[in-house]
C-alpha cells in the first residue's frame, strides 16, 4: 500500500478519511482539509486530484473542496460492504482465568 502515490494505488484509509471530513464540513479549503485529515498538504492535493478524476469530490476555482453525491454513495457502499462481512462475526465473552 503506497499512500504516497494515489494515482496508482490509493490508500483506502486516506480516501475514507478525506470523505468523512468532507461529510462533516461540506465545503472546506485544502489547508483546513489537510489539517483535519492529518495529511500533508502535498499528499492531500494528490489524493484530491485522484478523487476529483473519479468524481468523488469537486474542487472549485476558489480551492474549496466539496463531496459529490457519488463520493458519498461510494463511501456508504463501502461502509455497508465492510459491515456485511464484519457484522456477521459473533464474539464470545472470553476472560482468561488463572
Amino acid at each position: 500500500m503506497n499512500s504516497e502515490a494515489p494515482n496508482s494505488k490509493p490508500d483506502l484509509y486516506v480516501v475514507a478519511r478525506i470523505i468523512k471530513s468532507l461529510k462533516k464540513k461540506n465545503r472546506v479549503n485544502k489547508t483546513a482539509l489537510a489539517t483535519c485529515t492529518e495529511l500533508s498538504y502535498d499528499k492531500l492535493v494528490k489524493y484530491l486530484d485522484w478523487m476529483s478524476k473519479k468524481g468523488f469530490v469537486l474542487v472549485d476555482e476558489n480551492g474549496l473542496v466539496s463531496l459529490t453525491k457519488e463520493g458519498l454513495e461510494v463511501y456508504d457502499e463501502l461502509v455497508q460492504w465492510i459491515l456485511k462481512h464484519v457484522g456477521q462475526l459473533k464474539f464470545p465473552r472470553l476472560r482468561a482465568s488463572t
Binding site: L83, V86, G87, R95, A96
Partner: peptide, 22 residues
Amino acid sequence: SSMSEENVVKKVAELMETLDEI
C-alpha cells in the same frame, strides 16, 4: 450511514478486544 459506521466501529472494537483477550 452514520449508524452503519457506528456499527462497523463497534464490531471492529469487539474484534480487537477479543483478539486482545486471546
